[in-house]
């Protein structure tokens, strides 16, 4: 995972509400046992025709969209399944931040665990971003701000520890492992045993 403190990029705009993870990565691509190289399946049924040719009118296929790192999507992005393949594929495509007015819970957690910054902004900022594809925007993870080209600033919330991990490019596992003695004490002190072998 790369460290991300702030990133500046033109945006790719996908102006569709309730984009679900079945669209982000269709289930037939979940049969892999690896996590690398999954970017080719990103939005597979919207990006390609049945023969695998790119559909020219899909925003991610536009020549100018290549290399852009910020995706602006309609409301409630990432709803549906828990497949982590969704943020893996978005990250693999080169995108490092997704901006919407609402992002689904599981997708948000999965993104934070993979160096993809989920950014929820107010509806006015969201509307402006949807209406201005290609705008150069800065997502400042450290300051929790989105800065627009006209100098306007929108703030966003990100869980502080997840933000720390994104900024340092580290997994949250380390913190859990530091607490193993407390986990063991918890197990020894409880009044019942959740083992399946009791």
């Amino acid at each position: 995972m790369e460290k991300i403190r702030q990133l500046t990029s033109q945006t790719i705009v996908l102006p569709i509400d309730d984009v679900d993870t079945d669209q982000i990565v269709p289930a037939r691509f979940l049969t892999t046992t690896e996590r690398e190289g999954i970017g080719v399946s990103l939005f597979a049924d919207w990006r390609f025709d049945k023969d695998g040719n790119e559909l020219a009118d899909f925003p991610l296929n536009a020549p100018e969209a290549q290399g852009r790192q910020i995706l602006v999507a309609g409301r409630n992005f990432g709803c549906g399944s828990s497949r982590e393949h969704a943020p893996w594929a978005i990250y693999d495509f080169g995108i490092r931040a997704v901006i919407s007015s609402e992002i689904a819970d599981i997708f948000r957690n999965n993104s934070l665990n993979n160096g993809l910054v989920p950014v929820v902004v107010d509806t006015a900022t969201h509307r402006w971003l949807l209406e201005n594809p290609g705008a150069e925007v800065t997502v400042d993870v450290e300051a929790c701000e989105v800065r627009l080209p006209d100098g306007k600033v929108a703030t966003f919330e990100i869980e502080p520890f997840a933000r720390h991990c994104i900024m340092e490019g580290i997994d949250q596992m380390g913190f859990l492992l530091q607490n193993l003695d407390k986990i063991e004490a918890f197990e020894q002190n409880r009044s019942w045993n959740p083992s399946l072998n009791v």
Binding site: S82, R83, P87, N109, N110, N113, Q172, M173
Partner: peptide, 8 residues
């Protein structure tokens, strides 16, 4: 539900 990282 959780993703694969959290499964880990």
């Amino acid at each position: 539900g959780i993703g694969a990282t959290m499964v880990g």
